[in-house]
Design a protein around this nucleic acid. Structure first.
Length: 292
DNA sequence: AAGCCAGCCAACCGCGTTTGC
DNA sequence: AGCAAACGCGGTTGGCTGGCT
């Protein structure tokens, strides 16, 4: 005997999420926290499967998500991390806490892949094989050697970390900027979340004003009726994300952090911290050197 | 103005791993 | 211990949009 079934497979709605569905989901997470996705459809009345709810939350509604175009810094980080980690989008996303793995994956597939291919062909070499790039052959060679060396160093660090004694001292988290950044995130993500919801409600009310009566009928069945003001919803939502009761949220801001929250062992966390620190210093040290 | 096409991105699908019974 | 379902991740798809002809 296994777990009880997560949701009815029949009558499950697919396709784009409506603002009111978003609000229902946000309302659920506000009350119960992220997780227990299998209970979402029954608790909220959403006709979505739990998997779809989780995806919607992590890729769109989760606090702290930055939308819009990627900065040069982010772009460079993605390129370097992809070179090091491969298509481990969740791992890459953990270094860009404001971006989702889906976003990074999409950005890689639609922009960066093309950009790099272009660089490799037309930009790097002319038809007769002469190098035309802003990377001259020397600097490109240097960059490749550096990259390879860094990959080796990272691998070595990982091996070392994995072979660490249980009694190894735990690094002081406070001394690592990356960890600090994450800790800082926990206080700022909720504001971003409120922004998300504000936008959501804005869109919703806009569509409400122009939409057919069917939608308003459906929405009236939720706790977020059309009478709910943006302010009320935002206050209610953001208040549930106060730092005092939001440890779960702040720790689960990134997929990896979420993994930690779900009981990763202390040693594994130490290993990850060491690797994170290495990667981070590598990325930030070299970002200025890499010309795209 | 209409049709076609390419780009973008949200959402779905499939599969390996984890977890609860 | 073993099974079944949840979970998490990476790959893929399909619909929307804007540009071009």
């Amino acid at each position: 005997m296994g777990r009880p079934p997560c949701c009815d497979k029949t009558g499950v709605k697919k396709g784009p999420w409506t603002p009111e569905e978003d609000i229902m989901l946000v309302s659920f997470v506000q009350e119960h926290g992220p997780g227990n996705w299998r209970t979402v459809p029954t608790h909220t009345g959403l006709r979505r499967c739990s998997k779809s709810c989780r995806l919607r939350w992590t890729n769109y509604l989760r606090p702290g998500i930055k939308r819009g175009s990627f900065s040069d810094q982010e772009e460079k980080m993605i390129i370097q991390l992809q070179a090091l980690l491969g298509n481990k989008w969740a791992a890459i996303a953990s270094y860009l806490p404001e971006r989702t793995d889906n976003d990074i994956k999409n950005y890689w597939n639609t922009h960066l892949k093309k950009k790099l291919r272009k660089l490799e062909t037309s930009d790097l070499y002319s038809n007769d094989g002469h190098c035309l790039s802003k990377f001259n052959s020397t600097s490109r060679g240097q960059w490749e050697r550096t990259l390879q060396a860094d990959i080796n160093t990272a691998k070595q660090a990982l091996q070392n970390a994995l072979s660490l004694d249980e009694s190894s001292p735990i690094p002081d988290i406070g001394c690592y900027p990356f960890i600090k950044q994450e800790a800082k995130m926990s206080t700022t993500t909720y504001a971003s979340s409120a922004e998300n919801i504000a936008k959501l409600l804005k869109q919703w009310t806009r569509s409400e004003s122009t939409n057919n009566s069917e939608q308003s009928k459906a929405s009236s069945s939720t706790q977020f009726s059309c009478n709910t003001t943006n302010n009320n919803a935002m206050t209610e939502y953001s208040s549930s994300f106060e730092p005092s009761n939001s440890d779960q949220f702040s720790q689960a801001t990134t997929p990896e952090a979420a993994g930690k929250f779900h009981g990763e062992s202390k040693r594994e966390m130490d290993d990850e911290i060491q690797l994170s620190v290495m990667l981070e210093s590598w990325l930030f040290d070299e970002n200025d050197d890499l010309l795209i």
